[in-house]
Design a binder for these strands. Sequence first.
DNA 1: GTGGTCTAGACCACC
DNA 2: GTGGTCTAGACCACG
Lengths: 130, 130, 130, 130
Amino acid sequence: MLIAIDPSNGIPIYEQIVRQVKYNVANGTLVSGQQVPSVRELAKLLAINPNTIQRAYQLLQSDGVLETERGRGQHVSAGAKRTCTSQRASMIQERLALVVEEALQAGLEPAELRESFEAVVRRYVASLKH
Amino acid sequence: MLIAIDPSNGIPIYEQIVRQVKYNVANGTLVSGQQVPSVRELAKLLAINPNTIQRAYQLLQSDGVLETERGRGQHVSAGAKRTCTSQRASMIQERLALVVEEALQAGLEPAELRESFEAVVRRYVASLKH
Amino acid sequence: MLIAIDPSNGIPIYEQIVRQVKYNVANGTLVSGQQVPSVRELAKLLAINPNTIQRAYQLLQSDGVLETERGRGQHVSAGAKRTCTSQRASMIQERLALVVEEALQAGLEPAELRESFEAVVRRYVASLKH
Amino acid sequence: MLIAIDPSNGIPIYEQIVRQVKYNVANGTLVSGQQVPSVRELAKLLAINPNTIQRAYQLLQSDGVLETERGRGQHVSAGAKRTCTSQRASMIQERLALVVEEALQAGLEPAELRESFEAVVRRYVASLKH
DNA sequence: GTGGTCTAGACCACC
DNA sequence: GTGGTCTAGACCACG
């Protein structure tokens, strides 16, 4: 599992961790039952305050992605993959909806927006081929 | 001109004011040379501390949207409309690109995304007819 | 006499008036004993608040440039020309000294500065020939 | 780093701080990546309200001189030295040009001005030797 | 009346 | 601990 933190991009670090763990679960990189690094371990690995890791793990627990067993550390919970996958899709679609709605309200033409949208898709598909 | 503040939506109040003034300028609701309410006036109107308004107005000045004359209040500067319009379009398109790219990276299918996109547009167009 | 006011250049309007009157006196455009426009007259002429003119005239009086006689308005005082001429030269030289000193303290080389200085002079002389 | 504030010289305190920080960066006294005192710390040090420091630091951020990391304080950004040095030189030369032009327009002779200029330089060079 | 600056003190999120 | 935001109230210069 790879977690990359950018401490100066405005998104709280704990939030970056939460997202990337969920991403890795949805991904298959982290599978149900698998151990995740302990708070201290991950803190040392990322050179980040343990409190911050702790906070991320707590959020992941309350989202049902991680489970803790006394003295045995954290592991990925049973239904995590399904949860994350659907969460991710709906989150992303929700954000897309927000942006598009705001653009339309701001008076941009649907055609204009559609063209921007397709341009991004084309650029992304092209970048995959390299 | 209508400015609506939501003090509890996370976006700083001064930022909300900045956006809405720019929006109104891009809009044509505020035209070049037009006076905007004085700091104290707007503060009373929105029931917000004058310092907060002051901060918003200063940002608008440094963005070239407002000009101030000592003792005579603020007015919309000459090139404001062009500035705001282009800023707005590019900001929105940038955000659209970000969301779409993230969605693609997360593995969503272009077709799926396109459908979401069109759904939002349809919903918006429909809402206009009511 | 010509007075040009720029209300949005940061220099207080009363200060702009003071400077330009002094300039005109040093100039010979305004001579000793000559009447200057009344406060109200000048205010109307420049489309400026009479309080502002009043303030400028008071400063000019305390600088010994203008004198007032009951009911007869303001006129240029006897020694005004000498006062203004010397004031102007010393003021300007003082400002030059300030800028140059700051530049040297900031570490710019005298040679570099001298070159900038001469460039401005050359540019100015050239502009006169057109 | 030394910062000296004169609260009664007309220049706003936050502006004095901004200038002196930039000066120290251009100087080499503050180098890229170096921490600057926290808002509260500097406020206590200078016996000035933290809000005023905050304002100065925010301006420095928007000028690209400082960067902030949440909960970890401010540090000098990467390109800061280049930015500050060039800004300072161009600012000073611009001001020199302004003063010289005004002097010439006011009718002072280039030779006279040149003599004033050289006098300041001589005086400054002499003061260095003591 | 206007905007510009500053102080004092509070609350929040983040680390 | 850090920075970010906001309120309240004061003082000043300008017109």
